[in-house]
Amino acid sequence: MSAALTPTSPVPAAPQGAHRQPGFWPGLALAAAIAAAAMGLAALPALQAAGLSALTLAIVLGIAAGNTVFPAIAGRVGSGVDFSKAMLLRAGIVLYGLRVTFQEIAGVGAAGLAVDIVVVAGIFCLGTWLGTRWLKLDRETSMLIGAGSAICGAAAVMATEPVVKGQAHKVSVAVATVVVFGTVGMFVYPWAYPYLGLSEHAYGVFAGSTIHEVAQVVVAGRAVSEQAASAAVIEKMLRVMLLAPFLLILSSRLGAGGGADGTRSKIVIPWFALLFVAVSGINSLHLLPAAWKAALIQLDTVLLAMAMAALGLRTHIGAIRQAGAKPMLLAAVLFATLTVGGYALNVGAAKLFG
């Protein structure tokens, strides 16, 4: 689940009839053009030798455009870019199931699930405690930053907002912080891989259990290998699927079953994560002809590259300044805990569960 936005732009829902909104087709074309450029560059021998994949290049090109020319045209192409960033990413993750089998999902096993549960509970509680007790932030901002860091970035922030009753500016600040540090992790993890002493599979589980956004996990995994990417996506999907029980537990603990008008907070179910598992099952049973599978995998690469391009276009450097010092400091501490503590947790779980 992914969205990279400035603090004034919350994660957009993809409304029905989005293709009729002004700027939809131009925005889609812009994301496709950047994706095509990235895929072309990724085929160059020099960039292949440097380990730069099409997805990494797409987000880098997107960030470059997003902080230069894009702001001037955002009003004319924004709906298509946001559709690419939200819906095309989900479609790409669902189709990514064609690269994964149930045997690989089982390979993540009890250790991977246990790590995810500890990460979600531990990071959220730590974020709430540090934010309110140490940094003297309000509870809602602390919880939103904690949820985004613990589960799946900006989408988790948006899903948690109706439960904690956070105001719009608090949501925007939380989104900005998790986008910034998730993007940092996306580039730091592959760079650090040779020094971690982890197999490609173990690295993937580490990345999936600790990097903020689904899109960032895909890039960090693919930068190392397909095996690492598969393990990373599987682990991340397990973490994403913890969003629904997390919201249920949080709602009951806060007594947020209803507002002043008696309505209940909506609990978000990450259906795309469940569809990813279903497509993995289809792949495991070898139900698709080889030619169909190859074509769908190529389509998946295109969709993911477009989503990365859109993610880059919506990643604005100004988010760091606008978020403020205390929220950024809280997010930085949580990022360091995810990186260092998550590494130790993964190594320990691998030894404990064999």
Results as ranks from 00 to 15, higher is better:
residue 195 Y to F: 15
residue 191 W to S: 07
residue 203 Y to W: 13
residue 194 P to T: 03
residue 197 G to D: 12
residue 186 M to D: 12
residue 203 Y to H: 10
residue 196 L to W: 04
residue 157 V to C: 10
residue 175 V to N: 07
residue 171 V to E: 03
residue 183 T to R: 04
residue 158 M to T: 13
residue 199 S to L: 06
residue 190 P to A: 13
residue 184 V to R: 05
residue 195 Y to R: 14
residue 164 V to I: 15
residue 173 V to C: 01
residue 186 M to H: 10
residue 208 G to S: 02
residue 189 Y to A: 09
residue 193 Y to M: 00
residue 194 P to I: 00
residue 175 V to E: 02
residue 161 E to G: 00
residue 184 V to L: 15
residue 203 Y to M: 13
residue 197 G to A: 09
residue 202 A to F: 03
residue 180 V to R: 04
residue 163 V to H: 12
residue 189 Y to T: 05
residue 185 G to K: 03
residue 167 Q to E: 14
residue 178 V to A: 02
residue 194 P to S: 07
residue 206 F to D: 03
residue 194 P to Y: 08
residue 166 G to R: 06
residue 162 P to M: 08
residue 209 S to P: 12
residue 200 E to Q: 15
residue 163 V to C: 09
residue 168 A to S: 13
residue 182 G to T: 07
residue 167 Q to Y: 01
residue 176 A to Y: 12
residue 196 L to E: 02
residue 160 T to A: 13
residue 202 A to Y: 06
residue 195 Y to T: 05
residue 182 G to H: 09
residue 208 G to T: 00
residue 164 V to E: 11
residue 204 G to D: 04
residue 206 F to A: 06
residue 183 T to G: 11
residue 184 V to H: 01
residue 201 H to M: 14
residue 171 V to F: 02
residue 189 Y to P: 05
residue 203 Y to T: 12
residue 185 G to M: 07
residue 195 Y to Q: 14
residue 205 V to I: 14
residue 205 V to F: 03
residue 200 E to D: 15
residue 183 T to D: 09
residue 205 V to E: 06
residue 201 H to E: 12
residue 169 H to C: 02
residue 175 V to H: 03
residue 176 A to N: 13
residue 163 V to A: 09
residue 165 K to M: 07
residue 208 G to V: 00
residue 182 G to Y: 10
residue 163 V to G: 08
residue 160 T to D: 10
residue 206 F to Y: 15
residue 175 V to D: 02
residue 204 G to Q: 03
residue 197 G to M: 07
residue 209 S to M: 10
residue 158 M to D: 05
residue 161 E to Y: 00
residue 182 G to L: 10
residue 191 W to G: 01
residue 209 S to R: 04
residue 165 K to Y: 04
residue 201 H to A: 15
residue 205 V to T: 08
residue 198 L to I: 07
residue 171 V to P: 00
residue 169 H to Y: 13
residue 163 V to T: 15
residue 186 M to S: 10
residue 190 P to K: 12
residue 176 A to S: 14
residue 161 E to Q: 08
residue 178 V to T: 10
residue 196 L to M: 15
residue 158 M to L: 14
residue 180 V to L: 15
residue 203 Y to K: 05
residue 197 G to I: 08
residue 207 A to M: 01
residue 157 V to I: 11
residue 206 F to P: 07
residue 186 M to C: 06
residue 166 G to C: 11
residue 174 A to C: 03
residue 182 G to V: 05
residue 201 H to V: 14
residue 173 V to Y: 04
residue 195 Y to D: 06
residue 161 E to L: 09
residue 187 F to N: 10
residue 184 V to D: 03
residue 163 V to M: 11
residue 195 Y to E: 07
residue 181 F to Q: 12
residue 160 T to Q: 09
residue 189 Y to R: 05
residue 195 Y to M: 14
residue 194 P to C: 10
residue 194 P to H: 09
residue 205 V to H: 05
residue 181 F to V: 02
residue 188 V to G: 11
residue 184 V to Q: 05
residue 159 A to N: 08
residue 208 G to I: 00
residue 200 E to G: 14
residue 203 Y to S: 13
residue 199 S to Y: 02
residue 190 P to D: 12
residue 194 P to M: 06
residue 179 V to F: 04
residue 193 Y to S: 02
residue 159 A to T: 11
residue 188 V to I: 14
residue 197 G to L: 06
residue 196 L to K: 03
residue 195 Y to S: 15
residue 161 E to V: 07
residue 167 Q to M: 01
residue 190 P to C: 13
residue 161 E to T: 12
residue 158 M to A: 15
residue 203 Y to D: 14
residue 169 H to M: 04
residue 164 V to D: 08
residue 179 V to L: 05
residue 160 T to Y: 06
residue 180 V to H: 02
residue 208 G to N: 02
residue 168 A to W: 01
